[in-house]
Design a protein around this nucleic acid. Structure first.
Lengths: 199, 199
DNA sequence: ACTAAATAGTATGGTTTCAAAACTATCTGA
DNA sequence: TCAGATAGTTTTGAAACCATACTATTTAGT
């Protein structure tokens, strides 16, 4: 009974917090794109990964990205290892405007929550997302922290604190451990990630 | 720092849970409309109130409603007291399809949260919404429960448990006490509701 | 090694959603 | 009575989106 109110609240809050129309010259979808490419790790900063994350088609994602590249918010680089693939990186201009993100109102509101509440709130949100993503058959993005592919604290190498991803078999920097990854796998109720690794 | 993750989670969860494209013959906006008219009280089931709630313009809301009326989900009635105004009510067809609402996945996920967590989660969500709505200058909808206009347990009438709204000066049924109202006013940090009462 | 299938990305056409503006009708208040 | 506010609609143009079709590259099966 009350769960329905919660669900509607989440949708409503998302709508209101997105801001109406274009803010600071960027549309809601473009803001979503910038947010994604700011948080995604290097394996995930591709049109396809963004499409999967954002719940849209590759065609639509491609258009959104085209606009962001044209406006100087993203820089496009062809992959060295895969001739089909492309990597997108935020430009300085993009990082500068991210402080005017219309989502900042919501960020501030969340920041005003008592720390203890905020932590539990965050955990509950992630749980909801995991459940909904599973049911909708969408991939769940996550960070190395809780990923089964993560191999921390290099066991067989000298030089302390060497991190590695067992899925793509590549070393990871400390920064990347907290970035979103499309190859994320929580282990337990393994989301059936078909296909090969994104790298 | 973590607050930004929370904000992005809420937006993302809202997107994913809305379902892609039309589900069961209804688009995401149409579903939002049905949800609204299912929860709003009789003072608030108008195109303008829906526009205010949904954070869109009256023109857009009008179009959405036109479609829902044409498809037999809403019934339009002209107001008896105000020649300009229109009242929208759900039809039986609408109530029937609401069980197929794509939001049900999220409802089920929320229902799976431990009761104690769910309650605190709900409170935190409402707090976030209040804060964001205030900052965005949007009206905050609410129920009689915490509204300053609510006058419960009729003091000057016989017949126990008579409820009334002091803003529109009309009697309220028990059902209406838990419905959303555009005239809601929490009192404390009174959102500046300009204009006259919706009735 | 060779070929078929899968994948990454893009382009195009048409639909839906939306905001902004212009408009009519009605109500309110001085 | 009349100016201004309000309720609702329509129109126009811009995004957002999906479906489809397409090229290029990679992977997998035999």
């Amino acid at each position: 009974m009350d769960s329905r109110v919660i669900a509607e609240l989440i949708l409503h809050l998302g709508r209101i917090a997105s801001g109406d129309g274009s803010v600071g010259g960027l549309t809601p979808v473009q803001w979503a794109g910038l947010r994604y490419f700011a948080r995604a790790n290097r394996f995930s900063r591709t049109p396809s990964a963004f499409a999967a994350f954002h719940g849209t088609t590759r065609g639509t994602a491609s258009q959104t990205i085209k606009g962001l590249v044209a406006d100087g918010y993203l820089k496009q680089t062809r992959s060295a290892t895969d001739g089909r693939s492309v990597r997108l990186d935020l430009t300085g201009k993009a990082r500068a405007v991210l402080s005017d993100d219309p989502i900042e109102a919501l960020v501030g509101a969340a920041d005003a929550l008592p720390p203890g509440v905020r932590d539990k709130f965050s955990v509950a949100l992630q749980r909801l997302l995991g459940s909904v993503a599973l049911q909708a058959g969408k991939p769940l993005f996550g960070t190395c922290e809780t990923c089964v592919h993560f191999q921390g604290d290099g066991c067989c190498r000298e030089g302390a604190n060497r991190y590695e991803c067992g899925f793509v078999n590549e070393a990871l920097t400390a920064d990347e451990l907290v970035q979103l990854c499309i190859n994320f796998n929580a282990g337990k109720t393994a989301p059936p990630r078909a296909g090969t690794a994104w790298r």
